[in-house]
Design a protein around this nucleic acid. Structure first.
Lengths: 301, 301
DNA sequence: CATTCTGTCTTTAATGATAAAAACCAATAA
DNA sequence: TTATTGGTTTTTATCATTAAAGACAGAATG
């Protein structure tokens, strides 16, 4: 019917915790300070105080608020199982889309998704709207949404676009002065690559995270909000695919580390063209791996 | 309360128009065919037919639907003033934002915007969510939205990103075979430039549209959905700014036409580096013009 | 007298109820 | 068989309702 009072309940319980160590007869802070302490608005604080007063835990006379008795642990208000966060929704939805073998063009319905992901419908609608910008999903003319799906075609466009941005970042990077932070970071990540190389037999799974940070570092040379935004999306999708395609994983990661090191070496020598060539080769490998994982997944079901 | 019956009303009126030329006693099509003809679902058609029957305009016996009498013009159902379309909303909102009637950082509330733009609140929420991807607007932690605004910083990022994409498109374009459609289009648009040049004294306002088509053509060489999407956003924003900055407009457009022609000439000669240099110069000019229009507008209020 | 605090009121956003529309299936007429 | 319709279920768009946030003025405190 209306907004839930989850916020009130949470604030109530938090205040009970704050009250527990106080002696009986102690006076509470002002409403404004309580609001700041609990991280809620004064309206909520007043509702909480009224509820505490009617429970006989505090007495409110004028602006004096005194603790009448210790609250019982059982007096905490029950919290309904809360909805998941936006980030969790994004992760679970992408996981579902990227794993789910739906034909491109299937229609999504908000009601079912909201049940599936335990989120209110309007949150899902908002989320789908934000996804529509990246072309994974689109609005149907009258009602509902259509999943365009993560097709091979989409993956190709994504890889190509990634290459454009990343080669530009490489070209830009070599022009940065030696005092720039990126060179220190590059040196550090080079050491990490060498360290992982030494223990690759056992820890080859760690490469996925390292790969993500390496590419983020390269792109950080271009402080552009659009580059950053795309980098985030690309990283998410590549990361998810890495999780499935376990074929030749160790071998593939070893090759990728070698490629990364070639790029780093060329960058440190300020050899722009050499770095670009190395990056081009590496991105081609990554694109191939993405398409391979896609084919394997689609074939497997 | 619930969904509006605007769809029913529109279908009813359309069907009245279809019925008008028919003689009395004529039989109507089947529900499915009527639905196809009116562009609505069969449910709506059935509701319309029921309404026509109760108005005594048609008689429905079994599956025979016969026209009893000519409908009067006054029997059309009144349409409540309909909400604006999604595209219109986008145009009006961007117009509002880009004109800087609001300071960057102000919080937006859906209710007020929904009144201002005559759109239901949830449509506005959906629209804002889709905008959040392009970084013009962001969600506030608890409720509401914040307008990040079209700052000089944003314009710089946008111009830089545009340059990355467009230079890539240029480099790609020269590698396309002579039989490719783009060369014919390029030749055609070159002629348009020369034609506009001849009548520039009077028609310099036509340049804005030509500029948009020229850059769209360049980018069409790269058939990538992300490039296309960004091109659309960039075009929108540059277009809006062109509309205000009237200082030296004729002079500026003349310069831009010369720059365009230089790019085209270099492309037609397959001189990649020369084309890139010309494009770089032109994009620098465009960036300067954008920033200039921004400063002028901010100073003006 | 300045500052802090509270009571009251207004505005706004999240949520459930609900009507309209779409989709589906079985039955029936052609 | 094939096309059409009746009945039913599912889903979406819209609205009323309520919780939360915020603003303001007046009261209380130091």
């Amino acid at each position: 019917m209306a907004r839930t009072d989850a916020r009130l309940r949470q604030a109530y319980n938090s205040l009970l915790d704050l009250l527990a160590p106080l002696p009986i007869g102690a006076s509470l802070m002002s409403e404004v300070k309580l609001a700041a302490a609990l991280g809620v608005s004064r309206t909520v604080v007043r509702a909480v105080l009224a509820r505490l007063a009617s429970a006989g835990i505090v007495q409110i006379i004028g602006r004096d608020k005194t603790l009448l008795r210790q609250p019982l642990a059982s007096e905490a208000l029950a919290l309904r199982d809360d909805y998941i966060s936006h980030d969790a929704l994004e992760a679970r939805f992408l996981d579902w889309v990227l794993r789910f073998d739906v034909a491109a063009g299937t229609s999504l319905n908000v009601t079912q998704l909201s049940r599936q992901f335990n989120a209110p419908p309007h949150v899902l609608a908002e989320f789908l709207a934000s996804l529509s910008q990246s072309g994974l999903v689109e609005r149907r003319p009258r009602g509902g949404w259509r999943l365009l799906g993560f097709t091979a075609d989409y993956a190709l466009d994504l890889s190509d676009f990634r290459q454009v941005l990343e080669l530009h970042a490489i070209r830009h990077l070599v022009t940065l002065p030696p005092a720039h932070q990126v060179w220190a970071d590059l040196s550090a990540i080079k050491a990490e690559h060498l360290a992982l190389w030494a223990r690759l037999e056992t820890d080859f799974h760690d490469f996925s995270a390292l790969d993500g940070r390496f590419h983020a570092l390269i792109n950080s040379a271009v402080p552009n909000r659009f580059v950053t935004q795309f980098q985030k999306a690309i990283r998410l999708i590549f990361h998810y695919h890495y999780q499935w395609d376990k074929t030749l994983e160790r071998h593939r990661n070893a090759a990728a580390i070698r490629e990364h090191l070639q790029i780093i070496t060329a960058l440190e020598a300020r050899e722009a063209e050499q770095a670009v060539q190395a990056a081009r080769a590496h991105l081609a490998t990554a694109k191939e791996a993405l398409l391979h994982s896609l084919r394997g997944h689609q074939a497997g079901g």
